[in-house]
């Protein structure tokens, strides 16, 4: 579904990704772990098409299509979703209005009419229940005055609404208390299917106790230095990243 080949990317002429290779198939959950500054969030941004980063080499393919010339919103229409580490505030725009706009823009791109209000309401009700979101919350301005946990839960609510093919969750576990983590994780698990894929970016093993990955990759200095099954995450938890750094330095 998502194929990344020898991906190099830089920001302000500083190379951050130095040859990433990754293949994510439908139905799979991949975890990307690594120390601070290893390029995890950059990878997420580059997949989503953030133009702050320049792709200098390599390619990203979604369902066989090269994404190089594809704008961020078109990538979204094609099913790429990024749950942001730091979701931005948009004052005066309610969560509902934002979602309505997002869904209808995607539909427009596919040549569909706006979603009828009735269906929209039904969808909102269904998905907000899934994530145990109080619907009053949805009338509030997007992310304005939201707690860290509310922001993250709102991201996953948006994911539920948009039903992406590939969802990248960038540090979704950070800032969540244990109850919120459980709700978010169970939401993600319910949204997971054989037709979509999830990429979890995280520092800690904690999230992976709730959303169990099929593969774990360790990113260091802009490269995947080790891949393995879910047991790799445990090993990292135990030993830290230093042993890997040494291993790759050799």
């Amino acid at each position: 579904m998502l194929k990344i080949k020898d991906l190099h990317a830089s920001v302000d002429d500083k190379e951050i990704l130095r040859g990433i290779n990754l293949e994510v198939k439908a139905g799979e959950v991949h975890a990307i772990m690594g120390p601070n500054g290893s390029g995890k969030s950059t990878l997420a941004s580059v997949i989503a098409g953030n133009e702050r980063f320049e792709v200098t080499q390599g390619s990203i393919e979604l369902s066989g299509e090269d994404l190089e010339e594809v704008s961020p919103e078109e990538r979204a229409h094609k099913g790429v979703f990024l749950s942001f580490q730091y979701p931005v505030e948009i004052p005066g725009v309610s969560v509902t209005n934002f979602m309505k706009t997002a869904i209808n823009e995607s539909r427009k791109a596919k040549g569909l009419e706006d979603m009828p209000a009735k269906d929209m309401l039904k969808l909102i009700r269904e998905k907000s229940e899934l994530l145990e979101i109080d619907r009053k919350f949805l009338s509030r301005s997007l992310n304005e005055g939201f707690s860290g946990g509310e922001k993250k839960r709102n991201e996953i609510f948006q994911m539920a609404m948009l039903e992406p093919k590939v969802a990248i969750l960038d540090e979704t576990d950070s800032g969540l208390d244990i109850d919120a983590l459980r709700i978010v994780a169970s939401g993600v698990n319910k949204l997971k299917s054989k037709d979509n894929a999830v990429i979890l970016i995280t520092h800690y093993q904690r999230l992976l106790e709730y959303i169990v990955p099929d593969f774990v990759h360790v990113l260091h200095n802009g490269k995947i230095v080790k891949s393995g099954g879910k047991e790799l995450a445990l090993e990292l938890e135990e030993k830290g990243y230093d042993w890997l750094k040494q291993e790759t330095a050799v």
């Binding site: 989503a48 098409g49 953030n50 133009e51 702050r52 704008s71 961020p72 919103e73 990538r75 979204a76 229409h77 790429v80 979703f81 990024l82 942001f84 979701p87 931005v88 948009i90 934002f98 706009t101 997002a102 869904i103 823009e105 995607s106 791109a109 948006q158 948009l162």
Partner: peptide, 11 residues
């Protein structure tokens, strides 16, 4: 802010 909207499919 713009990128956030773009990422959700809003040009």
């Amino acid at each position: 802010q713009i990128f956030y909207c773009n990422q959700r499919g809003i040009d």
